[in-house]
Amino acid sequence: MANEKSSELPPGGIITDAGSSERYHTGEWRSQRPEVDKDKCTNCLTCWIYCPDNSIIVENEKMVGFKYTHCKGCGICANQCPAKAITMKEEGL
């Protein structure tokens, strides 16, 4: 929950910092989280291509995990993964 008082916010809710959406953790909206089985993953990066929220972490051309601060749990990566390496797990269980 936010803490700022009404009087502390810019009038009309305008945003005065560029790139501030990075600080807005849309990952909190997620009801299911993607998990990867690296034994099945072929690092084809199909998930990286399809992810609408830029939440596939790639290091040295290898898929290494998910940026859970901004992954909304849409499941597109799991649906597209040709190796069936990604599964969606219920959050909060």
Binding site: M1, A2, E4, K5, S6, S7, L9, P11, G12, G13, I14, I15, T16, A18
Partner: peptide, 25 residues
């Protein structure tokens, strides 16, 4: 030089505070 976003979404955690600004104004 001072980029500004007008009309962004405000979820339940901010909407009321932004609306209250109108009452003050």
């Amino acid at each position: 030089k001072n980029p500004t976003t007008y009309g962004p979404i405000a979820m339940p955690d901010y909407y009321f505070e932004i609306k209250y600004q109108q009452a003050v104004a």
